[in-house]
């Protein structure tokens, strides 16, 4: 399981993460929410070693991630970044890249078999020979997820995987992620903006503001006051089929009026 303790990170003198503590168990999806610039993406980058924290510890089971070689981390953690670049690599080759931490130069049938299995799981077989710059946003997201899966990790990190997707693609991707992590007993951390999707799919939720955790826990304990404190916006919480749905209070026609009057 992932255990983050007392994590601090700063860009120069500007603190981004301050004494962050949380843990994620196998089979669990943790959603990290918070306003833009709260430090969500930086948190993921610290966990997988792209950024080096100033202090604190990150453990995966008994292993100290901060002392591991980048290749070793890549065999433990699958990372789906927010920005996925399109290339002239085929879908098959783009997913095959996920085997990079295990490869020298030669690709064995074993590696290709795993790529094919991941493509099949995500319904991408028919696109295997298409270039990734010919894909839609949802398909590209699936390619990045398939790549993370063939790394055969124990922990998955997703940086806003649904921000650019339509509703159907959002539901499809989040449903798939939930199924994969419970089937394979993986731990997962996902940053996101959509509160209601987080409440629907995540086992637990962390609210981050100005680099510090403001709330960590299950969906049941979340109150309008916590959300208002994090986002500075009054909300109500309704329950539909026992699932909480967060709605901003007020008349949409009057929202943002002060700013638009000045334009």
């Amino acid at each position: 399981m992932l255990q983050v303790e007392n994590l601090c990170f700063a860009y120069g003198k500007h603190p981004v993460l301050q004494h962050v503590n949380f843990s994620v168990k196998p089979g669990e999806l943790l959603a990290v929410l918070g306003p833009n610039g709260a430090g969500k993406s930086t948190l993921l980058k610290c966990i997988n070693g792209i950024r080096r924290p100033q202090s604190g510890t990150i453990h995966m089971g008994e292993q100290n991630l901060m002392q591991m070689h980048p290749g070793e981390i890549a065999r433990t953690i699958g990372y789906v970044p927010q920005r996925i670049d399109t290339t002239q690599l085929t879908v098959f080759d783009a997913v095959l890249l996920g085997r990079k931490p295990y490869l020298q130069w030669r690709v064995g049938p074993h590696d290709m078999g795993k790529v094919h299995a991941a493509l099949t799981q995500l319904g991408l077989e028919s696109l295997a020979l298409r270039h990734t710059d010919e894909l839609s946003g949802g398909e590209l997201q699936k390619v990045a997820i398939a790549r993370a899966l063939v790394q055969e990790p124990r922990l998955l990190l997703f940086d806003e995987p649904i921000s650019a997707l339509d509703l159907q693609a959002q539901v499809h991707i989040l449903g798939f992620i939930r199924r994969v992590i419970s089937e394979h007993d993986l731990a997962a951390v996902m940053t996101m903006h959509d509160l209601n999707m987080a409440l629907r799919y995540a086992n637990r939720i962390v609210f981050l503001k100005d680099g510090a955790i403001r709330y960590a826990g299950g969906r049941e304990q979340i109150s309008p006051s916590i959300i208002e404190e994090v986002y500075g916006l009054p909300v109500t919480i309704h329950y539909i089929n026992q699932l909480p749905v967060v709605l901003p209070i007020g008349d949409p026609r009057n929202e943002g009026k002060g700013e638009t009057d000045e334009l």
Binding site: N48, P70, E72, A74, V80, Q82, D85
Partner: peptide, 23 residues
């Protein structure tokens, strides 16, 4: 040639490459 896989990873974007253990 020995760096082929590293160049492929960089082709897919710096963040992806770093996530795959490429410095």
């Amino acid at each position: 040639l020995a760096n082929s896989w590293n160049y492929n990873a960089i082709e897919a974007g710096d963040e992806t490459a770093m996530g795959l253990g490429v410095r």
